[in-house]
Design a protein around this nucleic acid. Structure first.
Length: 827
RNA sequence: GCCCCAAUAGCCCAACCGGCAGAGGCAGACGACUUAAAAUCGUCACAGUCAGGGUUCGAAUCCCUGUUGGGGCACCA
């Protein structure tokens, strides 16, 4: 192929080695001026399973647009990349093939890294990290110890989510709404196990409140999902005495004002409380309860969550005492009450709660109305089956009678507090983050268990606790960590006195790894600390984060949490990690998600081979708004390729010398060029990459026209336009843009240039077309000066022959004038 | 069931504070170049904005109702 034809293969072969050796996008902190404007642009790092796919192609194309944009705006941009390389797929692959997970992982990383280089994203390759490197996970262990020290990492015995396929526990966040594992797809079962937790619930209120600060900078959808997940609810805690017992049952309610309407009490069958209460009942009741509990535990999550199914439960043979009126309330166990929310027990107010009403109607329990909204058609809930949930004056409620809901709630809390039987209380749906996993390929938990049961942190000097060799180790999931089988590794001396002790054999959830990696990038090669506080001060928080919405809750919530913890520990002076967030959509095909089983996969490598890196990247950005899915069947990579060829040819046609003063060039073309410059910032910053490209195409069309039929290739305005095209195109198609820049006679690198400033004096038109309407219908177009006054335009419109004849002798009622564009004559 | 978002040309998508529905692309038709084709260049056509109602001098844009599609939540006391 000749050198004057656009050939993406030649351009890729030419520029890749130059970028590789010159490293234009590496950031050396010692060379960045203290007052240089900086941007930290971060793309979610990949998990190394196989080669890159089209989803990666999209994130890294879009992230790179933003990174390159900020360089064009004169910022020093940090744009790092690494690999999230611990995790189950490596381990499962290793088991299947009998190899070390390390091998599988680092082979995949090598492959992805090569593809990533070929993709020419402007990454700083000097800061690459892999979370499975001891140099990285050492600091994971350090983080764990910091949290352990503050009581934020702890072990407890609890019902946990167990994935029977992967044979490990899961965090709540990893269980899908249908009760399956987001990893293996298996139906998750509950198991009672002792596990490590991070105390994220301590941060629930801040995690919720600080979402307000992200309003507008994060997608509204993500904010909503996080708010839902945290699930704050405000109400009161009420203690019920139990007849024949010294203990009380605390319950949480959002409606303490309805306490006089409580007619029974329900505890979760799988809560310890239920067993405790029933233990003193008669044998028949105990047996009935046992059978019920067994039934409940056999239910899948889907069955259990079906709100439409008939309420079930058993009477426990015990009574609670209503603290405000002394009434005896029978206590039931029923599975519509959850063991791990609130206190695992509720007061039931059937008149005002659908679930309680359903239960009461099934079991023939009394229903007492205590809120009576105005209106004749209020039917007894016991009859209608519909509870009264609206506001209204309270009745049958002693001191609360006549009060509305808000006042009654406040009054009731006062009563409870005065009696010492309750208080205001807020609960959250969010539970503590279960971080231990019974698998090999993760960060070992740096704890030693003494013979006396003490949990002893591994001394910081002994970090990292390295994963043992897989030699002779059975990685097959068997319900306990494979590390437990590494006898030599597990057996250690107690740091306190040298007596025999055991290492904790579990590894950490890989979401721990990714919860702080953005900090590690800032000093990725520093062996002495997790992150450098000075570098953090310079770069963090992340200005722009780019990645998939599938991490809306998990990763983003955890990263926010860990950031706040590190803030509180004094390491960070900010407490939100990501200032703004862009969620890109998915790449799909023919309306469906690509999947191996459906065989509708578009392969990254194939597309790049066929059309070139630039065309694929351009297509990703041009397809539509970034948050929308891209149907690969709807886009034209060929079209992108054609445009790149067209743009590239324009640079070749330019006949003026580099440095030519554009003044005096075609005013029309200069106006288009400067309009583009005036608009490009706002467009990129509002993520309208597709519009930027459309405008760029428009600009190229104008230059083409100018070259072919206007003032010609020597017009300095043509050079000016071609240079702007090269600069702007560098955000999307770096090879083509870099080559254009060279052809235009400039020193490399186009990606390190800055946009010229738009000259406002070039933007104004010499004349504009004003439309004249009569009753909203366009009747005439007038060519007028752009700075015409309302009065002059009005006069011109009324004097226009077409208007005069259209009006005949009708006289206008109103004339609305918006100079210089618009006149509407209303009759 | 509840909440949120969307719907513009055959297709992907633009349209600022309400002011001529079109920036760009794909697909299409025609023409130039060519022995021919590809490539390239040029020209053209195509919708009245999901439906119905309202506000307004004027609505794709604001409000209401509905339809369709997408997403989130859902026995959380």
């Amino acid at each position: 192929m000749e050198e004057n034809e656009y050939d993406f293969r030649r351009l890729e072969a030419k520029w890749a080695p130059i970028w590789e050796s010159e490293r234009p996008f590496d950031v050396n902190d010692s060379e960045v001026a203290a007052d240089a404007p900086r941007k930290y642009i971060l793309d979610m790092f990949p998990y190394p399973s196989g080669d890159l796919h089209m989803g990666h192609a999209e994130v890294y194309a879009l992230g790179d647009v933003l990174a390159r944009y900020w360089r064009l705006r004169g910022h020093t941009v940090l744009h790092p990349i690494g690999w999230d390389s611990f995790g189950l797929p490596a381990e499962n692959a290793a088991i299947k093939r009998g190899v070390d997970p390390r091998e599988w992982t680092y082979d995949n990383i090598a492959q992805q890294r090569a593809s990533m280089k070929r993709y020419a994203a402007s990454f700083d390759w000097s800061r690459v990290l892999h979370t499975s490197d001891p140099e990285y996970y050492k600091w994971n262990q350090w983080l764990f110890l910091q949290m352990f020290d503050k009581g934020l990492a702890y072990r407890k015995d609890s019902w946990v989510n167990w994935d029977p396929v992967d044979q490990t526990v899961l965090a709540n966040e990893q269980v899908l709404p249908d009760g399956t594992s987001e990893r293996s797809g298996a139906m998750v079962v509950k198991k009672k196990l002792t596990q490590w937790y991070f105390r994220i619930t301590d941060y629930a209120e801040r995690l919720l409140n600080d979402l307000d600060r992200l309003e507008g900078a994060w997608p509204a959808k993500v904010l909503t999902m996080q708010r839902n997940w945290i699930g704050k609810s405000v109400g009161a805690e009420v203690a019920f005495a139990i007849e024949g017992s010294d203990r009380t049952i605390p319950v949480f309610t959002t409606r303490p004002d309805t306490l006089f309407g409580a007619t029974f009490m329900v505890v979760a069958p799988d809560a310890d409380l239920a067993s405790e209460l029933v233990s003193e009942a008669d044998a028949a009741t105990r047996l009935e309860f046992q059978n019920y509990l067994t039934d409940v535990q056999k239910k899948t999550e889907i069955e259990r969550q079906d709100a439409t199914r008939e309420k079930t439960g058993v009477f426990l043979g015990r009574y609670a005492i209503n603290p405000v009126n002394g009434e005896r309330l029978p206590i039931y166990a029923a599975d519509y009450v959850l063991a791990d929310y609130g206190f695992g027990a509720i007061m039931a107010v059937p008149a005002h709660d659908q679930r309680d009403l359903d239960f009461a109607r099934t079991f023939g329990l009394p229903v007492r109305v205590v809120v009576q909204p105005a209106g004749d058609d209020i039917v007894d809930p016991a009859e209608s089956g519909t509870p009264i949930t609206g506001d209204g004056p309270h009745v049958n409620s002693g001191p609360l009678d006549g009060l509305n809901k808000a006042d009654a709630i406040a009054a009731m809390i006062e009563v409870l507090e005065a009696n010492g039987t309750g208080s205001a209380k807020t609960t959250y749906r969010l539970r503590d983050w279960l971080i231990s996993r019974q698998r090999f390929w993760g960060t070992p938990i740096p704890i030693i268990h003494g013979a006396d049961g003490a949990e002893i942190p591994v001394p910081e000097a002994d970090l990292p606790v390295l994963l043992p060799s897989t030699e002779g180790l059975d990685l097959k999931p068997k319900g306990s960590s494979p590390l437990g089988g590494a006898t030599e590794w597990v057996s250690v001396a107690d740091p306190r006195d040298g007596s025999p002790a055991l290492r904790d054999a579990d590894t950490m959830d890989t979401f721990v790894d990714s919860s702080w990696y953005f900090l590690r990038f800032l000093s990725a090669n520093d062996p002495t600390k997790a992150f450098d506080v000075e570098a953090v001060r310079q770069w963090a928080p992340v200005d722009q984060y780019v990645g998939g919405v599938e991490h809306a809750i998990l990763h983003l919530l955890y990263a926010r949490f860990i950031t706040k913890v590190l803030h509180d520990l004094g390491y960070l002076d900010f407490d939100e990690p990501f200032e703004s967030l862009l969620n890109q959509g998915m790449v799909i095909l023919d309306g469906a998600k690509m999947s191996k089983s459906k065989g509708n996969i578009v392969f990254f490598g194939d597309e790049i081979d066929k059309f070139g890196v630039d065309a694929v990247r351009l297509t990703m950005a041009f397809a539509g708004p970034p948050e929308d899915d891209i149907d690969w069947a709807d886009v034209s990579v060929t079209g992108s390729h054609k445009f790149l060829a067209r743009a590239w040819r324009v640079a070749h046609d330019v006949a003026s010398a580099a440095g030519t003063n554009p003044a005096g060039g075609s005013a029309g073309l200069r106006r288009v060029t400067h309009r583009f410059l005036a608009d490009v910032n706002g467009l990129v910053e509002s993520y309208k990459f597709n519009v930027v490209i459309a405008r760029l195409m428009d600009l190229v069309n104008h230059v083409r026209k100018e070259i072919d039929s206007g003032a010609g290739a020597a017009d300095p305005a043509v050079r000016e336009a071609a240079e702007v095209v090269a600069l702007a195109l560098s955000m999307f198609a770096p090879h083509a843009a870099e080559d254009m820049w060279e052809v235009l006679g400039h020193e490399r690198f186009v990606g390190l240039q800055t946009f010229p400033v738009s000259d406002p004096s070039l933007l104004t038109e010499t004349s504009v077309v004003a439309i004249v309407q009569i009753n909203g219908k366009v009747k005439e177009r007038l060519e007028v000066s752009p700075d015409i006054s309302d009065e002059d335009l009005r006069a011109a419109a009324l004097a226009a022959p077409a208007i005069v004849s259209a009006l005949a002798d009708a006289s206008p009622k109103t004339v609305i004038v918006k100079a210089p564009k618009f006149v509407n004559i209303v009759l």
